[in-house]
Design a protein around this nucleic acid. Sequence first.
DNA 1: TAAACATACTTGGGATCGCATCAAATCGGC
DNA 2: GCCGATTTGATGCGATCCCAAGTATGTTTA
Lengths: 176, 176
Amino acid sequence: MFTLRVMSDSQRILDSIRRLVRMLRVSDRQAQLELGVSGAQLFVLTELGKTPSLSLNELASRTLTDQSSVSVVVTRLVDAGLVTRDRDQRDARRLVLNLTRAGRALLQNAPPVAQERLLAIFDALPEAERKRFADTFEEIVDNAGADDGPAPMLFEDSERREGHLKAVPKEDAAAK
Amino acid sequence: MFTLRVMSDSQRILDSIRRLVRMLRVSDRQAQLELGVSGAQLFVLTELGKTPSLSLNELASRTLTDQSSVSVVVTRLVDAGLVTRDRDQRDARRLVLNLTRAGRALLQNAPPVAQERLLAIFDALPEAERKRFADTFEEIVDNAGADDGPAPMLFEDSERREGHLKAVPKEDAAAK
DNA sequence: TAAACATACTTGGGATCGCATCAAATCGGC
DNA sequence: GCCGATTTGATGCGATCCCAAGTATGTTTA
């Protein structure tokens, strides 16, 4: 009956996450219109600017995505003439990715995108608050993600009843 | 050579966001394997469980996504026999969406998914910390989203002249 | 040396997302 | 009553993401 006007703090957090994700997506679209490259592409360019001659896997782990996803993105960048993709001399399996001149140029006058805007907002927070936020966020992600994901291949008998999760507050002292 | 440089708090936050987003995606994937429905689908089912007889647009604003995205998701749910999609008697443009018996059933024994796991983690935080986190998060998202707008639509973009303007991406279009 | 195992990428499948359009239905003004 | 403007969904498009296989290339072992 009542539309539950009072959101719990936990739900407020979830909602913030959703809004944030959406904002990032929309921002990507906009970047694509203005720059011609998508957010993912720009992110790859940025990493490649920071660390040249990366291989695909290295790039994947730096961008926290799957190797196949990066593969596609890199292909687009190569097609656009922003990145060079050569095979490693010593190990012909690996790639050696680098920015072209055009890639560096684009990176330089790329207007601030979503990530930069977010960074600016973070930086504007009082230092103590920012640190607390970062700490809590890391703790949350560690608890949620780490969970020492058991080899993604073992659980077979996942019946439809998965019982429960145990995201127990597992006091992890290994935070640092 | 160790890349373990001291990340600024802002960088740590950004990184947490990326990890979180990735975790959510992977989790969706898993839910799909176990339940047969993706995270987005499950989310729609949940909203429909909370508020029956929604229209597509209402559902879209509740799920914070575009109408077209929801349209596709709903189509899949209808095909799967989990949701009914009828036209409104009084206004044949609108839809009346509802869960089928199967939809309700699935929703009931759906094991906790990513969102639930996150909620559990949030709830495990000390109350004061949780509240502070929620407050800061909302503040950040508000600043990033509303943010005296990065010019809703500036088409002075040199190479794109489609000739037609689109509805202003004004965030608060949800008001109804 | 030849076969078995491992690593690095690519490709195809399936799902999501948001934008731009389009068709149908409804509303409004005249 | 009629015709144009607006609203509601559906569809096509392009891009991303992850996973599962498949294809080379490398390394190790029998």
